[in-house]
Amino acid sequence: MGPLLDCLRSVGGSAKPKEVSSWIARALDLPPEVTDPTIKSGANRFHNQVQWARQYLVWQGMIDDSRRGVWTLTPLGWKTHLDDVASRAIFLSTVKQYQETRRTPVEAEIATAVPVDDLPLDEQQEQSLLEVLQSLPPYGFELVCERLLREHGFESVSVTQKSRDGGIDGYGVLRLSPFVSLKVAFQAKRYKDVVGRAAVGEFRNALLGRAEKGVFITTGRFTSDAEMEAARDGVIPIELVDGDRLVTLFEDVGLGVRPKQIIEIDYAFFEQFRSQG
């Protein structure tokens, strides 16, 4: 929890979830054996722990959760600095509160232990969407990615013939201004596991003479080596879209999803009335 607050302060008060996880990993100099493993759902274990830390800070009023996909410090969060002892105290007090006020099995589950192998409640729907995408046939996934790129402003988007893709699943044009545009090639892979550096390198080789930029889309996630390869200087740049970011891109344009209002009980509000019996 402490490094999460430190991260948001250092970047001006708000950041996207993956940016926070990457910042913490760098700040704590965490090795790949800590940052790369997955949990039973297929999600990244380390990022899941960061998501749970954020959830506890939301319950404590230190992070504002009103804007989806962006973590923002509240005034309390700006001035709060937490060490491991203070973070543990927050966890224990939250568990106690939920044990005393829980009304449903879901709330009871929250209070059982440090939930490193479960997704936070507000992340479970995203995981369901990711599972739907992973269940599509390969060509169907390429087609839905074609639709996604078009919804996000790409022009002349098309999927290549299945037998002649040469390592490229489709093309599109990204117009930067009325006078400047880029030819972009994309690769769409339904992976549940990690995508390594070699796969990114092979995709870049396929781009030579065909496109000015590449977009690698996967329902899995990329290793740190793959991210370094994608950002390497002096070669064709490649944008990496992992499963978490892919879900956000679908949600941003309302593609394949419908909004649903959820009412959450503010247990802290009712605490002030408990002593008025």
Rank of each mutant, 00 (worst) to 15 (best):
G209N: 01
V173R: 07
S163A: 11
Q127R: 13
D118T: 15
R175D: 02
S177M: 06
L143S: 06
P115V: 03
A89G: 09
R103P: 05
A86G: 05
V116F: 15
A89Y: 11
P105T: 01
K96T: 13
E131F: 04
E146T: 13
L130S: 00
T94A: 10
Q97L: 14
L208F: 07
S158E: 10
F203C: 00
T94E: 09
K192E: 13
D193F: 12
S177Q: 01
H152G: 05
F91K: 11
D169Y: 01
K162I: 08
S181K: 14
K96R: 15
R147Y: 10
D83E: 07
K96F: 08
E142M: 07
Q127H: 15
V132T: 08
D118K: 12
H81F: 13
D117Y: 06
R175P: 00
L82W: 01
P178E: 02
E109I: 03
E146F: 08
E202L: 10
S163N: 13
L129N: 03
P137Y: 07
F179T: 15
T94N: 08
V95Q: 04
P115R: 04
R210T: 05
E151A: 14
V95H: 08
R147E: 14
D165M: 04
E146M: 12
R190S: 05
P120E: 00
K96Q: 14
R88M: 14
R204I: 04
L174D: 07
V106P: 00
G170W: 00
N205G: 13
D84M: 10
R190E: 02
D83W: 05
L133Q: 01
T80V: 03
R88W: 12
V173C: 02
V116M: 15
R164Y: 15
G209E: 03
V180G: 08
P138F: 05
A113M: 10
A113F: 09
V173K: 05
S158M: 12
T160G: 07
L174E: 11
E151T: 15
E100Q: 13
R103D: 10
R102L: 08
G196S: 13
V184M: 00
K96S: 12
G196M: 07
G166H: 10
Q127F: 06
V116I: 13
T94M: 05
Q99C: 09
R197S: 12
E100W: 10
E123W: 07
R147N: 11
L130D: 01
G140P: 05
F91V: 04
A185H: 00
S87A: 08
F203S: 06
L208T: 13
A113V: 08
D193K: 15
F203H: 02
E123Y: 07
Q134L: 03
I90K: 04
A108G: 01
V116S: 15
E155H: 01
D83R: 01
R164K: 13
V194P: 09
G140I: 00
V116E: 15
C145L: 09
S93L: 10
V85H: 09
A198E: 15
D84E: 15
A111G: 03
T101E: 06
K162Q: 12
E202W: 06
